[in-house]
């Protein structure tokens, strides 16, 4: 099991409030790691520390190391470069409403680089195919990204993240706003994604974590309580808090 992300002594604050306390974890490569825990446990802060988005919030502070393939993203790396390597998909689908479906997929490349039109269009098609959206939208590529259904929008956002060819993809409850059929498609996609990239996914739905992840991390009050293979966590968690959370006794 190759380590993709090595998080060492990670602490995070919002002003005086400590949101993450001494988190140490090794996220394995090309696997799906689920992050679970009750609201306000630091899940979101944790993944936002991995693409350096936490620091954008007023009053935010971070200490510790996050090694991506051995290189500290809080070292000399430019935060913009970090975010290109570590993609993110959000709870609410957020395609750019001023761009067409096709342009949304390659928005990052288009805004950043000097790609030829032909290259962009090929990349757009390829990524729409890899998220299984191609068949559904191939006749509507010119329409606004905001005109798609919620589930389609979310897959469009995943395609947009994938188009950057990221090392890691972070997902913050990507299906919590979607209907069961769209959720199933997202889950299917997440399982497929791990062939190409490392996925870290926050979910409030413990069944979903059990279905799609290889590893599970349980956070409580800013601490990483337990990190283990998903099968172990859901069959025989070692910590009483984990046990109580996943059996629905609290949270």
């Amino acid at each position: 099991m190759q380590t993709k992300l090595d998080v060492q002594d990670l602490n995070a604050w919002f002003y005086q409030k400590q949101a993450l306390k001494n988190v140490n974890v090794k996220i394995p490569e090309k696997m799906v790691t689920a992050v679970i825990g009750p609201s306000g446990c630091g899940k979101s802060t944790f993944i936002r520390c991995i693409n350096r988005m936490h620091e954008l919030v007023p009053g935010a502070k971070v200490s510790g190391k996050v090694l991506l393939d051995g290189a500290d993203i809080y070292g000399t790396m430019d935060p913009m470069d970090v975010r290109r390597k570590v993609g993110m998909v959000f709870q609410k689908p957020n395609p750019f409403p001023n761009m067409s479906v096709a342009d949304n997929v390659v928005a990052g490349l288009k805004l950043l680089g000097t790609y030829k039109k032909q290259e962009l269009s090929e990349l757009s098609d390829a990524n729409l195919k890899s998220v299984g959206l191609w068949e559904e939208v191939k006749d509507d590529l010119k329409k606004s990204g905001a005109s798609l259904s919620g589930g389609q929008q979310q897959r469009l956002c995943i395609a947009r993240a994938l188009a950057m060819n990221p090392e890691v993809i972070l997902m913050d409850e990507p299906s919590s706003a979607l209907d069961p059929a769209s959720t199933a498609k997202i889950e299917e996609l997440v399982k497929k994604l791990k062939n190409e990239t490392t996925v870290i996914i926050i979910t409030h739905n413990v069944q979903q974590a059990a279905r799609i992840s290889d590893m599970t991390a349980f956070f409580y009050l800013g601490e990483l309580i337990e990190f283990d293979q998903t099968a172990n966590i859901f069959e025989s968690p070692k910590n009483q808090l984990t046990e109580r959370y996943i059996t629905g006794r609290f949270g």
Binding site: L56, V82, M88, F90, P97, L111, M164
Partner: peptide, 12 residues
Amino acid sequence: DIREAAIALGVP
């Protein structure tokens, strides 16, 4: 959300 989407893509 829209701004965050752009931030997450590493757009300055």
